[in-house]
Design a protein around this nucleic acid. Structure first.
Lengths: 340, 340
DNA sequence: CATTCATAAGTAATCGATTACATATGAATG
DNA sequence: CATTCATATGTAATCGATTACTTATGAATG
């Protein structure tokens, strides 16, 4: 890294012009077998590593081989999976990924968006701050290549990869009902994120289908953070007639809920049952093992990157929506089926 | 991002040369109040966002305002804290951070190192693959600005931020001993990472100090991954005379251990006690709450970035080693003191 | 009043790649 | 044999910033 080898150094060593080296590098235009060999030899000998910076400065939009990835909360393991998936797919085509964590903070989001812009990315994969995220929306309107993951945008058509949130939470609630639960607390994330509302919809549908009356006092929304999760759980447990089961709307809320439940000495699932949205690779390490709605985070990331490639190829095709399936991982935190 | 505004656009709008705009941007050289005002006005009106790419191409080493961050395993929440800390400190001086996760994979590490080099970073913060990581070592030898975190390098002097691993594990083991445990299993990460060995040293010291004979069959090293953690725990639990307590050498091993323990229906801490190295923000969500050696991951990251700034300022000063303190977070997974 | 100097701002080269354009060669074509 | 064309390679401009260098101005100095 000291004095980096440049394309000129390679050209000189190989006895050709830098244009020829560039041709070898990009496999473009005509090159004789002989020239190619000389260049490849020189590159190897000098351990040449072309400057992505210089390349990005020159090359047009869409060929810069860099994606931006802007994630709401890297402390949530679900998003870590998404990041890994995006990178994996991007690398198959020699694209690099610049991952940014805005930690659910609007100013941070703006800051990273500026950084990514100034890094000349080809496209962006993002979990918008919320549905009306003006920053992301205006980029989409400008025609900048964007794929949203996990969260959709309102009032604007954009490529998006989500999961069947409604169906996922429906399955979870139905599972609880079948195990005999009637009073089920719903603990959502930010209301302004569509995902949160779809999860509520599944909750409502399951209750309605089983003729369980909706009790509005059993429905809460927070801000997807640990503290808010704790508060919601506390509120539920402090009720005169507390719910017998909790549906926690994401990873972080689930973890917060478990802390409160354990600290009160309550037994899962006897005193209180819990299903979480978002599985974790260590769900079995919880005691009892957590029943959870698994989202394919890694696959979400992969699909998002694939979609972004497609968008670059065809900038004008109509945006698509990919809906991946969730899976209810039944473990032990909801109790066993007594009705059987 | 469509047609980005360039410094020339700003210059034209302000009626000055691009040099003058650059001077305002960098607060360098002489600028009249009047010119500065015009330029600032134009920048605001055009929402000018200077190209980091163009800047990095031109500017010399050390002023490019970009750090590389190469992390061993982003799925380990400890490293997530490190990343957050690095970014936080870097941003105070307008440096951006390019985070890379090599997932404990050597080829990945090489790939990212190439990417980072070609991105013209000013310096690198890295958790080396292991002690003899030739790639990182050769960069250090070249004089490239590097700060190692969490893991040191062998045979080469380099800036490094670590914790008192020996003392941390000593405290943990001593705690177990005081609670009456004599047969304590040690489950380490990769033996080739100094950290793993230092944690073993603390383990040995605590045992020796309490005149407990060392039983080599109670000491295992794996590769810091979940599967290897499971295998080690299984091996211990399958012994004729299994240990009464486990010391797990990192987050991931701890989690793996818990899975095995719970799956066998063993009760913590009655059947088996456990202390983990690495605390997690949700250690209280485990049941029972996990007693763990907390590393200040966030602070490690901050200090590493600070050190890298210092290294850039004074390239030739002798490398330093910062050792941060661990803290034993006593919760419930080791049992309560019966000796009292 | 000539000289010096601090202030101010512009011109053009530069970073390391890609690419538009020019040029050269030899085989194939009519 | 003149023309065309596929192949092969080089020259120079370019991307958007910074910076070495030049030039200009007016106040201060001796």
């Amino acid at each position: 890294m000291k004095d980096s080898i440049t394309i000129q150094d390679v050209a000189k060593r190989a006895g050709v012009s830098s244009t020829t080296v560039s041709r070898v590098l990009n496999n473009s235009g005509y090159i004789s077998r002989n020239a190619r060999n000389k260049v490849e030899k020189a590159m190897k000998e000098l351990e040449y590593n072309p400057s992505r910076v210089a390349r990005r400065l020159r090359v047009a939009d869409g060929d810069r081989k860099l994606f931006g990835l802007l994630i709401a909360d890297i402390q949530n393991p679900f998003y870590v999976d998404v990041v890994r998936g995006v990178e994996e797919m991007a690398f198959t085509r020699d694209y690099a990924v610049y991952p940014c964590n805005f930690a659910q903070d609007r100013n941070r989001e703006k800051m990273y968006l500026d950084i990514l812009q100034s890094e000349a990315i080809d496209g962006l994969i993002v979990t918008p701050y919320h549905e009306e995220d003006e920053l992301v929306i205006s980029l989409v309107r400008e025609g900048f290549p964007i794929v949203c993951v996990d969260r959709n945008l309102g009032n604007v058509d954009v490529d998006v990869v989500v999961v069947d949130n409604e169906a996922g939470s429906y399955k979870a609630i139905k599972h609880l009902i079948q195990l005999g639960h009637q009073r089920i607390g719903f603990l959502g994330g930010l209301y302004s994120i569509p995902t949160s509302r779809h999860r509520k919809d599944g909750y409502l549908r399951a209750l309605e289908e089983h003729d369980i009356p909706i009790d509005e006092s059993l429905i809460e929304f927070g801000d997807s953070k640990y503290e808010s999760g704790k508060q919601m759980v506390q509120k539920f447990l402090d009720m005169d007639e507390p719910p017998t089961a909790l549906f926690t709307g994401n990873n972080v809320i689930t973890l917060a809920g478990l802390e409160v439940i354990h600290s009160r000495g309550l037994i899962i699932p006897d005193d209180i049952a819990i299903v979480g949205f978002d599985d974790m690779y260590w769900s079995n390490s919880l005691n009892p093992p957590l029943t959870a709605v698994a989202q394919p985070g890694y696959e979400i990331g992969r699909q998002a990157a694939r979609m972004l490639f497609e968008r670059l190829n065809e900038p004008n095709k109509p945006p698509r929506k990919i809906v991946l399936k969730t899976e209810l991982m039944i473990r032990k935190s909801c109790g066993s089926d007594v009705s059987k």
